[in-house]
């Protein structure tokens, strides 16, 4: 086995640790379900509400996984673990669990609603998962105190919910993309734009992951090495 750890091991460990958080997992499922049921009457609102719940739940779980990992990260670096493999593995593990959850919700939506474009809903859910993981990751890098971190995510998610989605400010919030893709999928291209949504999701994820990596590198102390 090569030194420096493997992304696969990091992903596996992330999934294992997550699987032990039974109560957290229950809330992860309950929160989007409750949001969905609250608006079950209309396909568009119910799907958008579901996506909002998924984004919020997954970013919060990612946040806690990131903070939890940060207590191990310095020790693991000393053992030779490559930081980027740890990060990639954790992000991968979280995206995988989010995707599993998203798949279940696609099945739910397909059975429960008459939506115009089901694959569009799938794309919106996947965008929600990826942007939520990216956002939770970068918040975890900046805000290390758990209560404050959870409130920070609440702040962004709440703003996303109350701001006019067609306004400029809403477009600078992390969860705008999945709503846009969902509107496209449910109400048609006249109402929402797939390409805008995808572009926003990709930009948000890239921005968050790059910012997170940059912060990691910035906070890395340097040390003088003994001459051999």
């Amino acid at each position: 086995m090569k030194t420096g750890g493997s992304t696969l091991t990091a992903a596996k460990v992330t999934l294992l640790a997550l699987s032990r958080r039974r109560a957290t997992l229950a809330i992860l499922v309950l929160l989007p379900t409750a949001f969905y049921l609250a608006r079950r009457g209309t396909p568009g609102q119910s799907v958008r509400s579901l996506l909002f719940g998924v984004s919020w739940a997954i970013s919060t779980i990612t946040y806690f996984a990131t903070v939890e990992a940060s207590t191990l990260r310095p020790r693991l670096s000393l053992t030779g673990w490559k930081a980027y493999r740890l990060e990639a593995g954790r992000i991968g593990g979280l995206v995988i669990s989010g995707t599993v959850l998203a798949t279940a919700f696609i099945v739910l939506v397909a059975a429960d609603q008459d939506v115009r474009n089901l694959s569009g809903v799938a794309a919106a859910l996947f965008a929600a998962v990826v942007t939520a993981v990216a956002f939770g990751e970068v918040v975890g890098r900046i805000v290390t105190k758990e209560m404050e971190g959870a409130l920070t995510i609440f702040l962004f998610a709440g703003l996303q919910a109350v701001l006019n989605p067609f306004g400029t400010v809403a477009k600078f919030l992390p969860f705008w993309s999945s709503r846009e893709i969902a509107t496209y999928a449910v109400d048609g291209p006249s109402e929402g734009s797939l390409s805008n949504g995808v572009a926003h999701a990709v930009t948000t994820a890239a921005f968050c992951f790059v910012a997170s990596a940059a912060l990691r590198l910035l906070n890395r102390p340097s040390r003088n090495k003994l001459a051999a």
Binding site: A10, L16, R75, L76, G80, W81
Partner: peptide, 15 residues
């Protein structure tokens, strides 16, 4: 949330 041998596996992987 990890068991002892899972820790060993994770830390060992670094080496």
């Amino acid at each position: 949330n990890l068991r002892p041998t899972e820790h060993l596996q994770l830390f060992g992987a670094g080496f």
